[in-house]
Every structure is written in structure tokens, then in C-alpha cells.
Amino acid sequence: MSPTHILTAAHCVAHMSSWDVSRLTVELGMHVLKPSSDAQVSKKVRRVTRHKGFDSRTLYNDIAILTMESPVFFTSTISPVCLPPEGSNDQYTNKDAAVIGWGALKEGGSQPTVLQQVTVQVITNDKCKSSYGSDAPGGIVDHMLCAAYPGKDSCSGDSGGPLLVQSSPGSPWIQAGIVSWGIGCAQAKYPGVYARVTSFMNWIGKNTV
């Protein structure tokens, strides 16, 4: 993906009007959210592309692309996250994965002021289906990815953020998922559910040219 595009969740932008999009910005190199942003670069968003198959009830196809008005130049505080290799069908099963965001630190908790990171582990979709049972609104489907770790999870406010993996220590970060949904936060029965990026590579390619 060129440095003018960012992946996010479709449900985060589902109700945006053209007026909302015209006021939307991407803040880069940011570490502190409140009381004042320390973003290094601010970019206006030129276009929001939401997957046409997005379903707000089941959260199927929960992916969107933010296209910024100009390219991003990388610095010591702003660096890229890579897409999975073209043609990859890596399931990332049992891989440690990092989630980064300003979401609540616990279910029902307050929002932090400093960017947080948590490490979870990718599990199989079969295990995820078994855990959720009939509680998943549309079931756990192939284009979803689940990750969990005792006492750790993404939470409210992390939606649309990245789930990142590395093939080996020191290698480039790859975006394996996009924070999508879950029941509660860090509940043993309910892993975090993410949009599986490898399932959308053709769609991403068609919408970032």
C-alpha cells in the first residue's frame, strides 16, 4: 500500500457524511492524546472507501480505507506498517500479535492519555467459533481473525486500529487484522475479533490505485 492510505474498520466510518469526511484528519507520529495532541504531522483525508459488503449487524466485511490528500514522508517517529505479502494465506495461528490504541484499559474503564500496546495471541477460527457459539451475531467467518490472551484484549475505543505481527524479531511489522468487535473486554469466553487483512487483499488493491 502506498503511503497515502490507511486501513480502518468500516463501522468506524459507517455514518460519516461528506461534510464529516471533509473535516477528517489523520494524526501521525502521535503518542499523547490528552490533554494536548503531540502529533508530528496532520494530514487531511481526501476519501473514505468503505467495503460495500459491510453489514452493521454481523460486522461482516468490516474494513475501510482512508486516502490522505498527500503522501506521508517517513521519519524516526513515523514509519510504515506493511500489508501481508501478495497471495499470502497465512492464518498467523499461535503468533503473538500487538494491538495499539487509545481504547479503554479495561471493560467499562476510562480512556488512557498515552498510546497503549498489548500483546495477544492469534487463535484458530474453529476455537473462536466454539468460544462464541451462538453469541456471535453473524458467526465467526473466514474473513475474521480472533486473538486472545488471559487478561489482555483490545477494548472500547480501539476499533479500527491495527493488529500487528512480525515474522521474526526485528522484521517489518505486518498488519494481520483490524480491530472489529468482541463481547466485553478480556473475557475468557470471548476473544477479540478482527477483520482478516489477507482476505481483503484483492479489494485493497483495487481501491488503492
Rank of each mutant, 00 (worst) to 15 (best):
A9S: 08
A10D: 02
A10F: 03
H11A: 10
H11L: 02
V13A: 05
M16D: 12
W19K: 14
D20W: 05
V21H: 08
S22G: 03
E27I: 12
L28F: 11
G29E: 03
G29S: 06
G29H: 02
L33N: 06
K34E: 13
S36E: 14
D38E: 06
K44P: 03
R46W: 00
V48A: 10
V48F: 05
Y60L: 04
N61A: 07
D62G: 04
V72I: 14
S76Y: 12
T77K: 14
N89K: 15
D90W: 04
K95Q: 14
D96Q: 14
I100M: 03
I100T: 15
K106F: 03
G108T: 11
P112W: 07
T113N: 15
L115Y: 03
I123Y: 07
N125E: 10
N125W: 13
I140K: 00
I140T: 12
K152G: 08
S156T: 14
L164T: 03
Q166D: 11
S167C: 08
S168G: 04
I174G: 03
V179G: 09
S180N: 12
K189V: 00
Y190E: 05
Y190T: 02
G192H: 11
Y194Q: 10
N202W: 12
W203G: 09
G205M: 02
T208P: 07
